[in-house]
């Protein structure tokens, strides 16, 4: 991470990146669900672990999901898989935002305690 936030722990920068990736992934999941009945549509995803370990800035790489059963109309969206990812991403986001919140709370309490 090239910009450790001035006031926050470097972990906060990582958390921000993590939440960004989760948002990007949630977008793809929503798009897959919306296109669950579109003929010829192929499910999209990001290589999540790879992207996070790279810690590159910029847009994440989008890949087609492999290994899904293709239906007669050429569509391979699995609503079960997308529902699981939807819930998983929301929970991961919840954890990350709770951690980031506690980081911010720390700084806030430092500011408040110093003022009196």
């Amino acid at each position: 991470m090239q910009y450790p936030p001035a006031m926050l722990d470097p972990v906060a920068g990582q958390l921000e990146k993590y939440m960004d990736l989760l948002s990007a992934r949630q977008r793809l999941v929503a798009s897959n669900i919306a296109n669950a009945d579109t003929p010829g549509y192929h499910a999209l995803d990001i290589d999540f672990q790879g992207e996070f370990q790279n810690a590159v800035s910029g847009p994440p790489g989008i890949v087609e999901v492999s290994g899904l059963a293709v239906k007669n109309d050429g569509n391979n969206v699995s609503l079960d898989r997308e529902s699981r990812l939807l819930a998983e991403n929301a929970l991961r986001f919840q954890v990350a935002s709770a951690l980031l919140h506690s980081e911010i709370q720390n700084v806030q309490s430092a500011i408040k305690e110093g003022s009196s």
Partner: peptide
């Protein structure tokens, strides 16, 4: 099928709404 598809989209919106709310709560 249409009804299930509609429900799945509602669930997606619900999950994302929760994520936005959590970002605001920061």
């Amino acid at each position: 099928g249409a009804s299930r598809g509609y429900e799945a989209n509602v669930a997606a919106i619900g999950a994302v709404k929760d994520m936005i709310q959590r970002s605001i709560d920061l």
